[in-house]
Lab assay of single mutants.
Amino acid sequence: KTRWTREEDEKLKKLVEQNGTDDWKVIANYLPNRTDVQCQHRWQKVL
C-alpha cells in the first residue's frame, strides 16, 4: 500500500470532474497502481 501523491490527487480531481462518480473503474484506468475502490475511498474520505 503506497501513499497517494499530490499528482495522483490532482489527477483524481480532474478525472472526477470529467467523468463523475458513477464508474470508478473508468477513473482507475487512468491511475496506474490504484483500484476503483481505492479511488472511490480517496475521493469520499480524503478529498
Rank of each mutant, 00 (worst) to 15 (best):
E7Y: 11
Y30C: 06
K14W: 05
T2F: 04
K45Q: 12
L31H: 03
K14G: 11
R3M: 15
V46S: 10
T21N: 08
A28G: 06
K1Y: 15
H41V: 12
R3S: 14
V37K: 12
D22P: 10
Q40D: 09
R3P: 06
L15D: 01
V16K: 03
D23G: 04
R42Y: 07
T2Q: 15
K13H: 07
K1R: 04
T2K: 12
H41P: 01
Y30T: 08
E7S: 11
D36I: 08
K14Y: 07
Q18S: 07
E7R: 08
R3T: 12
P32C: 07
Q38L: 04
V26E: 11
K25I: 09
Q40T: 04
N33S: 13
H41R: 12
T5F: 11
N29L: 08
C39G: 00
P32Q: 09
R34V: 02
E17G: 13
T5H: 02
L47P: 06
K25T: 11
L47M: 15
D9K: 03
Q44T: 12
E17Q: 05
A28E: 03
N29H: 15
Q38H: 11
W4S: 02
V16F: 00
T2S: 15
E17D: 06
K25V: 14
L31V: 08
D9H: 01
V16C: 08
Q44K: 12
V16A: 05
D23M: 09
E10V: 04
L31W: 05
T5K: 12
V46R: 10
V37G: 09
C39F: 01
Y30M: 13
W24T: 00
R34E: 01
Q38V: 05
W24Q: 01
K25Q: 14
Q40L: 08
Y30V: 08
V16P: 02
W4D: 00
V46H: 14
C39K: 00
K1I: 15
Q18H: 10
V26I: 11
Y30W: 14
T2I: 08
T2R: 06
R6V: 11
Q44L: 14
W43D: 04
Q38T: 05
D23Y: 04
N29D: 06
R42T: 02
P32L: 07
D22C: 06
Q18N: 10
K11E: 07
W24Y: 03
K45F: 09
V37W: 11
K14V: 09
D22M: 07
D23K: 08
K25L: 10
V26P: 05
K13E: 03
W43K: 02
P32E: 15
Y30F: 11
V16Q: 00
D23H: 08
K25A: 08
Q38S: 07
D36K: 05
K45W: 10
N29S: 14
W43S: 06
N19V: 12
Q40M: 14
E17K: 09
L12F: 15
L47A: 04
K45G: 10
N19M: 14
T21R: 05
D22W: 05
V16M: 03
A28V: 03
I27M: 04
R3H: 15
R3I: 11
K11I: 07
L15C: 06
W24R: 01
K25R: 12
R42P: 03
E7H: 10
A28Q: 06
L15A: 15
N29V: 10
P32T: 12
E7L: 09
L47S: 09
L31Q: 03
G20L: 05
D22E: 08
Q40A: 11
Y30R: 13
K25G: 12
K1L: 00
R42E: 08
L12S: 06
R6G: 08
T21I: 12
W4C: 00
V26L: 13
D36H: 11
T35A: 14
Q44R: 10
T5L: 07
E10M: 14
Q18P: 02
H41C: 10
W43Y: 13
T21P: 07
K1W: 02
L47I: 15
R34L: 03
P32R: 10
K45C: 10
G20P: 06
Q18C: 10
K45A: 12
K45Y: 13
E8C: 00
V46E: 13
E7T: 10
P32M: 06
R6M: 13
L31T: 03
D9E: 06
R42S: 01
Q18M: 07
K1C: 02
K11A: 04
E7I: 09
W24H: 02
V37A: 12
K14T: 05
E8V: 02
H41W: 12
L15Q: 04
K13Y: 14
K13V: 09
E17T: 11
R42V: 02
T5I: 06
K1M: 01
Q44M: 11
T2W: 07
Q38K: 03
W24F: 07
Q18G: 08
E7A: 11
E8Y: 01
L47C: 12
K25M: 10
K13W: 06
E8G: 00
W24G: 00
W4T: 00
I27P: 02
Q44D: 13
T21A: 10
E10C: 13
K14A: 08
V37D: 13
G20F: 07
E8M: 04
I27R: 01
K11M: 07
E10K: 13
K45V: 06
N29I: 02
H41F: 11
V37S: 09
T5W: 01
D9M: 02
N19I: 06
L12V: 01
W24D: 00
Y30S: 14
R3Y: 15
Q40N: 05
W4V: 02
E17M: 05
D23R: 10
L47R: 15
G20H: 07
W24C: 02
N19S: 08
T5N: 07
T5E: 05
Q40G: 04
R34C: 03
N19L: 15
P32K: 10
E8N: 03
K45T: 12
R3W: 15
C39E: 01
I27K: 00
W4I: 01
N29F: 10
K14C: 09
V46Y: 15
D36C: 11
Y30A: 12
V16G: 00
K13R: 10
Q40W: 09
G20D: 13
W24I: 00
C39P: 01
D22V: 13
V37R: 11
Y30G: 15
Q40R: 11
N19D: 08
L31D: 01
A28H: 02
K14E: 13
